[in-house]
Design a protein around this nucleic acid. Structure first.
Lengths: 158, 158
DNA sequence: ATACGTGCAAAATGTTTGCGGCTCA
DNA sequence: TGAGCCGCAAACATTTTGCACGTAT
């Protein structure tokens, strides 16, 4: 399934949302309102959002979108590699916009006290992951790292 | 919540299950049948099992245990740090036995083709994670890494 | 015009809660 | 004996599926 080609890269200039639309169009998808709304919403978010949150946010913005549609759109986007599915351990799946080519990839710090989800990037971590994959002859398609604990703020406040 | 103390270590000689029982007893928990069954089952498994799998396996072994009880037991064990909750992205939470002290800690390779869940350990990876946590002043309690892709077997067969 | 996209409602699945009865310490 | 443990059934929450209508191409 959708292994991202290196050639996908370089499309990042203006906005991810625009790229996503383009890519969908080129694959024969129509530019329906609900899909566009979800793409643009996720594009504006820094980190993951759950299907429920997306529904509420769209509704708050005056856009009424069916829950089923949201799940369907997210599923399509995930298969196309335009969105990543993340699970931080609370049983709710979140989705976040992905830059084509896998750049700007990040991981998550989940604070058990305040619930904040913080994105982090780290080269050494990525390298270590690639090395493990290679050692195990495992062809990595996607990967995620989640740290659970207490964030700096909560730690200081304590 | 249950940050594992270094002094917890060294209890590993005979069997994890025995240690878990001890620890539970010392905290005032009784040694009920269902809990013991779940502990022993997980102790014998190398990698994570879902609540449903646990129920089926126990039932197959002639031990009828209520689903609710399994979830309750798993929740307790998780809070005591005797079990880890892992999510590999299919919406099902799995649980696996943990060695006290955090040793023998491992991560997961999920093959999207055959569905196999393979445990892996890697020092460099662990170090990288500790470094990130430190840089972000984040007090890590638990962490997990999941690689999605194609395992060596499926890659060779293809 | 037609196939795709969408919303609503209903169903399926995984997990949690309530409660009466049983059991271990 | 009595506090906790357990199993059943019902409640919940999230996600998926079915179907009819609307809309972009």
């Amino acid at each position: 399934m959708g292994a991202r080609q290196p050639s996908d890269r370089g499309a990042r200039g203006p906005r991810r949302a625009e790229y996503a639309h383009q890519r969908l169009t080129s694959r024969g998808f129509r530019r329906g309102g609900a899909r566009a709304a979800v793409i643009e919403l996720l594009d504006a978010e820094e980190c993951g959002r759950s299907a429920g949150e997306i529904e509420d946010m769209l509704r708050a913005g005056g856009r009424r979108v069916g829950r089923a549609t949201i799940y369907r759109v997210l599923d399509e986007l995930d298969r196309l590699g335009l969105v990543t599915r993340i699970e931080i351990g609370d049983g709710i799946t979140r989705y976040e916009s992905v830059f084509p080519g896998g750049t700007e990839h990040h991981h998550h710090l989940v604070c058990g006290r305040c619930g904040t989800l913080t994105p982090v990037t780290d080269d050494a971590l990525e390298k270590a992951i690639r090395r493990v994959a290679r050692r195990e002859s495992f062809a990595v398609d996607e990967h995620d790292v989640t740290l659970h604990g207490m964030c700096a703020n909560c730690g200081a406040a304590q």
